[in-house]
Design a protein around this nucleic acid. Structure first.
Lengths: 344, 344
DNA sequence: CTGTTAGCGCTTTCAA
DNA sequence: TTGAAAGCGCTAACAG
């Protein structure tokens, strides 16, 4: 086993091909002004030695882009965000760029570290699902010429391109559909309010109540669940109320899964019937959402498209090198209503 | 808007702090042999200028690691692989390393490009879910001193560390459980056979039949579905047979979701009863698997743990710089049996 | 404890 | 069309 053999350099390739390093460099850059004959020799040497041009060394020259895009998301394992990352990767790959991926775990401190690290690696731009209210590190990135695109959430006071969903409208429409179906006790399972989407979706939820003249029972509002298990516990607490909700608005993927999980437990362990359990309205679609024991309506959107758009905004910024005004996209959402079937 | 301001360098920090570049470098490296007084001045200058050490420039020095790990997976959007990536990221982050993530989309050509690109960026190691049978590019990486860890699948003839699942055992046990419950017509939905896990899981499926003396009907075997929609179509074809299966073994996540999707369609559109539809055995667990309209038993395992183990193998390799014999891990799987409830 | 020198792998600039 | 020199940002190695 040859083990830690050093990687070949331009110089070694040059020697092997019997040319100067510059000829190797030029050949690899596309071969302008190099005899086909020499190109042949160079490429042969490259193949024999298994040479790979050192992109890091290349990118230290000022003006030379690193070809890297830093992506900081809150939870890689959440299918919503991983699909988002796929969208970003696809767009980036189309321009030959790679993504550096980091998980913030919804922790502002980690996010700041991550961004600092990304800057150190000379990323050309950043795509961030911001976690906190502070924007010093993002401001700083932008300030040193690294464009930032915010996805899914914005940060107050930060001037940057962004792609978010029409959260309030989605929550409004979803909640209204429940109210119009006759529900008067609708619970809310969601993120902490200080998170951008948490605030906006809650606002839509409240507004729907106001517009329909229905009073909102504060005991039905549970916020701050990040993980499925927390959401399941919150759901259980709701079901144990004297006057439980007849429908539950779940403000995101994780809360929906938690709510459904608890419903499953009620059916299998506690022996309750699906008919006696609340129906759900889920902001974020998920796989097999149509096959749940209780009806799950969804406020659907395409995280992959969100990723593509975010990447497109960033790539646009990189080309224009532009000081253009920030572009703020707000993608529409689709309400897919599901109700109890007649046979239930 | 200051726009494309050049990023500050050590030299500029040095000037601002009134010291030499080396003092800056030393301070940032931990501050050994630097007066606290000077360190103060340097750190102040760093903060004022928003300086970030250029990791790329740093890593061109031979022996200096890049702090990057290349991860090539087949489908970022598949929750199974994204959770895997999370495990890798966690472990890598513990040693201050970052991951470069690429999607191969199950395409060997893309995989080879990706690996080449990763090598150009001087990754310290590679974690790959291999797509093809060819291993030239991986062999080459290993050969130039970049350790490779294969995850989930191995490649014939390639000497490398690997973490895979006990695929055959899982498939054997899952299929056996079905046979022992009295099923004699069990269908198979899976990957193409040339894929490592496809081959192994199919082998377990066949072996169970042999051991139980049950003949396998080749018309019940559908291979080659990569995407959910393909799997749903294959499932439909199975259900339309004159003599349809009473149970279906789904060899992976995507095929299971497809099968369940089709079952949902049969119930809602075709008006069939869950009782008349086959139960499923799924290799790979998934969220809410316990709440499906037909019983879905799962052969479960933890993709995050798989990711952590793969990363641990790689990190071990990086520390030992070792020519040690390749380590081949095979993680156990857990069979979780679900059957129809009495009330069905 | 601090600074100077040299050079990592590469490519831009200039000369042949 | 080719090559030599110089320097990108950083830090080991060697003075001082």
């Amino acid at each position: 086993m040859s083990g830690q053999r050093r990687r070949p350099t331009v110089k070694e390739v040059a020697v092997r091909a019997g040319v100067s390093p510059m000829t190797v460099s030029r050949t690899l850059a596309g071969g302008v002004n190099v005899t086909p004959e020499l190109q042949q020799r160079v490429l042969a040497a490259v193949a024999e030695l298994g040479y790979h041009r050192d992109e890091n060394a290349r990118s230290i020259r000022p003006g030379q882009p690193s070809g890297l895009i830093g992506v900081a998301i809150t939870n890689i394992a959440n299918p919503y965000y991983s699909t988002f990352a796929l969208g970003v990767e696809e767009e980036a790959a189309r321009t030959g760029r790679r993504i550096l991926l980091g998980n913030t775990a919804e922790d502002p401190v980690r996010e700041a570290q991550l961004v600092g690290d990304f800057l150190g690696r000379r990323v050309e731009g950043l795509i961030v699902v911001p976690t906190g209210v502070s924007s010093d590190h993002l401001e700083h990135a932008r300030h040193s010429g690294v464009p930032v695109v915010l996805a899914s959430r914005r940060v107050a006071g930060l001037v940057a391109d962004s792609v978010v969903l029409d959260d309030e409208d989605g929550a409004l429409r979803g909640t209204s559909a429940l109210l119009e179906a006759g529900h008067t006790r609708i619970a809310y399972l969601g993120n902490i309010r200080r998170i951008f989407t948490g605030e906006r979706r809650y606002r839509g939820f409240v507004r729907a109540h106001r517009e329909h003249g229905i009073e909102l029972d504060p005991r039905l509002v549970a916020e701050g669940q990040q993980e499925v298990e927390q959401a399941a516990r919150a759901m259980r607490a709701l079901l144990e109320l004297d006057d439980p909700p007849t429908a539950v608005f779940c403000a995101n993927n994780r809360n929906t899964i938690g709510a459904v999980t608890e419903i499953g437990r009620q059916i299998s362990s506690a022996g309750r019937r699906a008919l006696d359990l609340p129906e759900l309205m889920s902001f974020d679609d998920f796989e097999l959402s149509g096959l749940m024991p209780v009806p799950v309506s969804v406020i659907a959107h395409d995280p992959r498209e969100l990723g593509r758009r975010a990447a497109a905004l960033l790539l646009g910024r990189l080309e224009d090198a532009g000081d253009a005004a920030p572009r703020e996209l707000e993608l529409p959402v689709t309400l897919l209503r599901r109700t109890r079937r007649a046979t239930d």
